[in-house]
Amino acid sequence: MDFNHIISGFIASFIFFVRRVIYLIVSPYKTMRDIAQDDDMMQVLFIFLCIGVYFYFANNLRNYPHEPWILFFMTVFHYLLTVTYFALFMILSTKQHRVKIAPFMLLFSYALIPTLVWFITNSVLYALIPPPRTPSFLGKGFSLVYVSFSIGILFWKIMVTYLAIRFATGFRFFRIVYSMILYLIAVIPYSILLYSLQFFRIPFL
């Protein structure tokens, strides 16, 4: 029956999504390689559902100047711009006329997982131990732990993004670095603009 097929497909996609998020921590290389072979767009929907739910709950912790659904749609827009940029970069640099978009969409959506983890942790810590930090012993201790955590997540994010570009485009090391530098050259001023317009203090990329 079609309905049973849809439900079982939904459950299978959810199980794959949870499994891959966990394996992204344990073995990101094999996980991203596995994701690149897939074409199940339901997993992209689960990731964005998590992001949408996060924006809704974060808005309850501290009121954003803009509605959470605006921030969510901006995040989706940024994601689509990122996918388009790397797909176009691949088309222009390899002179291919066609590109399979499913690996790009899956890989770059999983590349948002480290960002989501950092934002969720930050929001929880904001609720439990709101800033500002003091130069007391506990303040310094927490600051060290927090900065270590943030640097760890940043390394994870760089690794996962590198693997997303590697498996989506097939580029080698220097071309990946070059494409990332050009991407950052566009993203950094854009992030400053978003900050000045009070959309994002730190962009959700």
Binding site: A58, F119, N122, S123, L125, Y126, P130, P131, P132, R133, T134, P135, G139, K140, F142, S143, L144, Y146, V147, S148, F149, S150, I151, G152, F155, R201, I202
Partner: peptide
Amino acid sequence: LSIGIAVMMYLVVGQLLIHLVSLLQNGF
């Protein structure tokens, strides 16, 4: 590696690290 970098940052910038943390905590 992250713990090592955080400790080095604290040794280099000192109290500025605490201000950075306050800034980052407001970043979401």
